[in-house]
Structures are given as structure tokens and as C-alpha cells.
């Protein structure tokens, strides 16, 4: 329970950074923090105390593996989600570079004022 709460604190910090800060790079950092804590939360749900990693070795007992192995399903989904996060981060970086080239500033309120 306390592990979940500490994880949610990171997500709340990311949400605050995303809403309240005006710098574009700070907003990107907020998105990245939310993404990390979300991935970690899914893995924490699938963890089993004294569990085994979901990779079978030749000398391993099959029955024991199926009883004590951790959940492989969230791991598989998070594995794709991490790489998608890198792709969306690159897309956000491209937007930030383009905005900086056009307006010569990273300030969100400044950009809004210039648009009129």
C-alpha cells in the first residue's frame, strides 16, 4: 500500500508540473514523469512476493514456476509502452524545437500572446 502511495506522489508531481509551469521543457518533463510512474505502477500490480522472473530455464521446476512466477502480462504491455513513450517524446521535442525557431522563446504565455 505505501509503495503505491509513494508512486502516486511522483505522478501527482508530474501532473502539477504539467499544469502549473509555463516553460515548454518543464511541461515535457512533467509528461515524462507521469509516464514513468504509470509504467512502474503497472509492474507493481503484477509483482508477487518472493516471485520468480517469467523466464524459464532448463533446470527449473515447471510446477513451481507456474505457482511462483510474477505476472508476465503487465510486463509485456509496459515493454511496448516504454518504446512508444520514446516516440512521443521525440514528437514533443520536434514541436518544441519548431516553436522555438518560430517565436524565439519557450514561454507558453508569451507564445499565446503573440498569436493574438
Amino acid at each position: 500500500m505505501i509503495v503505491y502511495i509513494l508512486n502516486v506522489i511522483i505522478m501527482a508531481l508530474g501532473l502539477y508540473c504539467l499544469i502549473a509551469k509555463r516553460h515548454i521543457i518543464k511541461k515535457i518533463i512533467g509528461m515524462v514523469l507521469i509516464e514513468y510512474s504509470m509504467n512502474l505502477f503497472l509492474i507493481l500490480i503484477g509483482y508477487r512476493i518472493n516471485g520468480l522472473a517469467p523466464i524459464l530455464l532448463p533446470e527449473m521446476n515447471r510446477v513451481q514456476f507456474s505457482q511462483y512466477g510474477v505476472d508476465p502480462l503487465p510486463q509485456a504491455l509496459v515493454l511496448t509502452s516504454i518504446v512508444i513513450g520514446l516516440g512521443t517524446l521525440a514528437l514533443m521535442a520536434a514541436y518544441a524545437m519548431k516553436l522555438y525557431e518560430k517565436y524565439r522563446t519557450f514561454d507558453m504565455s508569451e507564445i499565446r500572446r503573440l498569436r493574438g
Binding site: V83, G87, A90, A94, M97, E101
Partner: peptide
């Protein structure tokens, strides 16, 4: 697929941005 795609993203971020700055 993933390797070529991420390398292409890095090419895009490094080349295209810098060309524009130099032209300006």
C-alpha cells in the same frame, strides 16, 4: 524496425533543425 525508426528520429532532430537555424 525499432532501430531504424529511432535512428531516423535522431537524424531528423539533428539535421533538419540545424539547417533551418543556419539559413536564418
Amino acid at each position: 524496425k525499432v532501430g531504424a525508426c529511432l535512428y531516423a528520429i535522431f537524424i531528423g532532430l539533428s539535421i533538419y533543425g540545424r539547417v533551418i537555424v543556419k539559413e536564418e
